[in-house]
Design a protein around this nucleic acid. Structure first.
Length: 249
DNA sequence: GCGACAG
DNA sequence: ATCTTGTCGC
């Protein structure tokens, strides 16, 4: 079956991009972009996960993970960690092909009943020249609600938001708003927020702001980065784990 | 041709 | 992304 076919429905996510050429990758992005859903979220979200990867010295082994947080207090309640072999090089605009295979593996390891309402990626959603950043790509493949939070701009133009925390400006490409530059900390470089799939532009900026605490990066992405690094250095083990809630008495 | 360029 | 030391500031 050809994944580029218009009639192909994503049931079992395609996660093997081994040997794909950039031209083929571009074609896949152009085929998937029409499947992105940017309608407003309908239900209130209870949990949100951060997704990220970490690489070993040579960049051959991928340590991937998702950390699920309770939306109320942004505390981690579970995490899923896996390793995978690296197959695709890093090419700006094609990050999805490098990270999605491993992240999908980690996602599928989470029991269906425990899967997060939203997944925040360390990268972009539609803030991409073909509107197909890693968050949108993953969201379409797995039919999940996703968004992106990148540390650097990938596409579009924007004016610097004011130095105050919580201010943001639109990132515009071809006369279209594709995301926002959000100041999460006073006098600190903004982060770039965009919807991935299953939510609107307004939803993405709203959720991002609700996930910011004391740091530049929103908690989901920050925790995901922290956990995959603990995994790479051996402090955490592969698998799906639930975190016991701290009881005070 | 030149500048830009997620992780 | 990863490696790497000190330093400035809350």
């Amino acid at each position: 079956m050809n994944v580029l076919s218009d009639h192909w429905e994503p049931q079992i996510p395609v996660t093997d991009y081994n040997g794909l050429t950039i031209t083929e990758a571009t074609n896949l992005q152009n085929a998937l972009r029409h499947r992105v859903n940017l309608k407003p979220l309908r239900s209130k979200i209870k949990t949100i996960a951060g997704a990220d990867i970490s690489l070993d010295l040579h960049g051959e082994i991928v340590f991937a993970g998702l950390v699920i947080l309770d939306m109320n207090d942004l505390q981690p309640i579970a995490y899923s960690l896996v390793t995978a072999t690296n197959t695709f090089p890093y090419v700006p605009g094609y990050l999805a092909f490098r990270e999605i295979p491993a992240i999908t593996k980690a996602f599928e390891q989470i029991p269906v009943a425990s899967r997060p309402d939203v997944i925040m990626f360390d990268g972009n959603g539609i803030l991409h020249s073909r509107r197909m950043g890693i968050a949108s790509h993953f969201g379409v493949l797995t039919q999940t609600v996703t968004m992106g939070c990148a540390k650097k701009k990938l596409a579009g133009k924007y004016t610097k938001p004011d130095s105050y925390k919580g201010t943001y400006t639109p990132v515009i490409d071809k006369n279209e708003t594709i995301g926002f530059a959000l100041r999460t900390k006073v006098n600190v470089k903004p982060v770039f927020i965009s919807p991935g799939n299953g939510m609107s532009l307004a939803d993405s900026i709203s959720i991002a702001m609700n996930c910011v605490r004391k740091h530049r990066l929103p908690e989901p992405t920050r925790k995901a980065h922290e956990f995959v690094n603990l995994f790479r250095t051996g402090a955490l083990k592969e698998g799906y784990h639930e975190i016991q809630k701290m009881t005070l008495f």
